[in-house]
């Protein structure tokens, strides 16, 4: 029995040239991918931006009922010295109807110190409520003026378009009155 095969090829019709096409194409794709990744990754945070990723703060000067804003990773961080009334309200609302369920005890290492990323989880505005003169929203915490999100005294979203609670940054108490964020 004789079979006719293409010149320099195999019975299934593939030729050496087909192999070369595929090999060339595959190598080009790998090469292009290798070159594209640096072009994409250069847009990620650079080493100096990563190096500035922690902030220290002395809490002793913040009176009860006061709040301060510090910068961490280019964003505001809210540090609030909560009153007993605010803590009680936050704990009482643990069982309320929360869009993003969280208990207050998990959101503050020490109940009197509430430390939150001051960036609305909707589209990134800074909510009002840090200064005593600012509106604090319907739940006594913060109010975002951009699109109307209300946060409670635990920084939990209660009303408005934001999907999540205000974030809790990683922080440690270095001693009783000093913290490091990041």
């Amino acid at each position: 029995m004789t079979t006719t095969t293409p010149e320099g090829g195999h019975e299934d019709g593939a030729t050496r040239r087909d192999f070369l096409y595929i090999a060339t194409g595959a190598m080009s794709a790998v090469g292009a991918g290798l070159f594209v990744w640096p072009l994409v990754d250069q847009m990620n945070p650079s080493a100096d931006v990563l190096a500035l990723a922690s902030t220290e703060l002395d809490l002793s000067a913040i009176e009860e009922g006061q709040a301060v804003t510090v910068m961490w990773r280019g964003k505001p961080v809210f540090v609030r010295h909560r009153t007993a009334e605010e803590i009680a309200k936050a704990k009482a609302d643990d069982s309320a109807d929360l869009p993003d369920v969280a208990v207050d005890a998990d959101r503050a290492q020490k109940p009197e110190w509430l430390i939150l990323i001051g960036v609305c989880t909707h589209l990134g505005c800074v909510p009002l409520g840090q200064k005593s003169t600012e509106v604090k929203g319907d739940f006594g915490g913060w109010f975002c003026p951009c699109h109307g999100s209300h946060y409670d005294t635990s920084g939990r979203i209660r009303k408005g378009p934001a999907p999540l609670n205000l974030g809790v940054p990683p922080y440690v108490f270095l001693d009783d009155s000093n913290i490091r964020i990041g």
Binding site: M43, N44, P45, V49, R73, G74, L123, G124, C125, C146
Partner: peptide
């Protein structure tokens, strides 16, 4: 800030995309 934060609405990869767009953790 508001416009780039729209990308955080994308499930799972939204945060990473936004950080990539910013080249940092904020605008």
């Amino acid at each position: 800030t508001v416009i780039t934060n729209m990308f955080t609405a994308i499930p799972i990869v939204g945060e990473a995309i936004t950080t990539w767009l910013w080249g940092g953790y904020s605008v």
